[in-house]
Design a protein around this nucleic acid. Sequence first.
DNA 1: TCGTCTATGATAAATTTTTCACAATTCTGT
DNA 2: ACAGAATTGTGAAAAATTTATCATAGACGA
Lengths: 290, 290
Amino acid sequence: MSDATLTISDRIQRKLDDLTRAERQLAHSILENYPASGLGPLSTLARDANVSVPTVARMVQKLGFKGYPEFQAELREELRAKVKNPIAKHDTWADGAPSGHMLNRFTDAVINNIRHTLGQIDPDAFDAACALVADQERRLCIVGGRITHILAEYLFLHVQVIRPNVTHIQSTSNAWPHYLLDTKNSDVFVIFDMRRYENNTLKLAQMAQELGAKIILFTDQWRSPVHQIADISFSGRIVVPSAWDSLGTTLLLVETMISSVQNLNWDDTKARMEELEGMFDQTKLFRKFT
Amino acid sequence: MSDATLTISDRIQRKLDDLTRAERQLAHSILENYPASGLGPLSTLARDANVSVPTVARMVQKLGFKGYPEFQAELREELRAKVKNPIAKHDTWADGAPSGHMLNRFTDAVINNIRHTLGQIDPDAFDAACALVADQERRLCIVGGRITHILAEYLFLHVQVIRPNVTHIQSTSNAWPHYLLDTKNSDVFVIFDMRRYENNTLKLAQMAQELGAKIILFTDQWRSPVHQIADISFSGRIVVPSAWDSLGTTLLLVETMISSVQNLNWDDTKARMEELEGMFDQTKLFRKFT
DNA sequence: TCGTCTATGATAAATTTTTCACAATTCTGT
DNA sequence: ACAGAATTGTGAAAAATTTATCATAGACGA
């Protein structure tokens, strides 16, 4: 194995026998809580290990680095790689396609987005949002923009089955002021607003807020201005190798929300689904078999 | 929650709204590969985020640290604590939520679906499908059902920018027979049909095929009957812990297709996008800043 | 016991990094 | 369109960290 693939920890252990007493003492101190201690100033490291400053400098050179900063840079690089690692494990997603194939590049990006987004989500806020959406006492308005209206509609189509009193508004249409007429302060607005934030969406959100409605926002990592007035907001990463953004992460959040809301209202949902099934049967919309 | 128990990542996110543009840019850069980037020199961090050196210093103070070194010290402390903790962090996606939380269960399922689906996709078929969709000589019809029409519309909204001569049909509407009137045998139909396969969709597909059109199908793992007559079909896994199915995997495929098609037609796409931008500017639909 | 050689640490010099003060720019509200 | 405020960047000064030089202590063999 070449040096490039060895971690610094490995390199230290391999060299351990060639080191002098003070250096070994230092080495053990580094490994003690690795890699944090190596990322601080040289002098701190020396003090913690009870060795002199030059000892640290010398050992770092013995390990093959030009100087302490170079040693630190590699430690950071190692940390960076380690944090990324759980995804990188799957080198290629579509077997048989080169790793540079769009299928693999895109999937990588989406998984990355998901990891990032989920890591930053506050589960309590998420639960609170689900509870609001599930609350049948409140009227629910779902709002989407030029592209995001498809997420709004997706959420609408499902929540509609779970509970009554749900509306889907497209902020890009000019019909939305009508919906605000009846807004009460118990109402809940779920708003989707992603890059190329829309003026209409912001206005609608402001008016809804002034009327006392609760606002739940789904936006991207750069955050729609609606964020300022939203009660709860979720920002999903949307960067992919494309001229456009990805809705993948946000869809995941929406689907999870649907599932949670369904659980909160399960008794009702079950009854409503059965009823719906019956009606679908009559329309002959779906195939009965295969 | 006191500052002591908050991670720096949390603190950055909490402050995000109080930050200025450059500072937010920096904040995202720090979170991008956290915590490695914050452990390097201030100047490197500034360069990576494309902001000036004092901007970094100022933000760090806004976060409540006396200076950059103190900020770094706490980052290291955080890393130290995290490494010491024997908890398998990669077990869960949403830190702070129990592994049984819906967020984690759902994400697990979706990632699993993606892995499964991508593993079975034939890249050549995928490329062939993209080439068909990109071919401007052919008329393109995009067809969706009761739920899947949102994917159809999503694809439509994007392909519409990339190339002319695209139509979106909802098989559940009763207007679709009209679209078949002009079908030529060079036409391409992209059809979405997932569980609760729809009678109308099948009929539409059959008629299109009889008229000589090419058919590309997106379906689920159990495969819509349209599969029998489709030229190319992709089946995505859709099982999640919910009473409903997930469109996540299929959305991934659609977005990847959009990106590939965009690349195939890049010269045209670029020109069309610029034109579209100009038109959007005139509508004042989108916000110019923030 | 002495001399030599290596290991170690103290100190000073050099370099890098951080902070500060101020000017240029951008944004906001009238 | 303008004035005032806020934001951002430039360059210099201050502080720190790292590196180099050198002296001392200890180990080992003669």
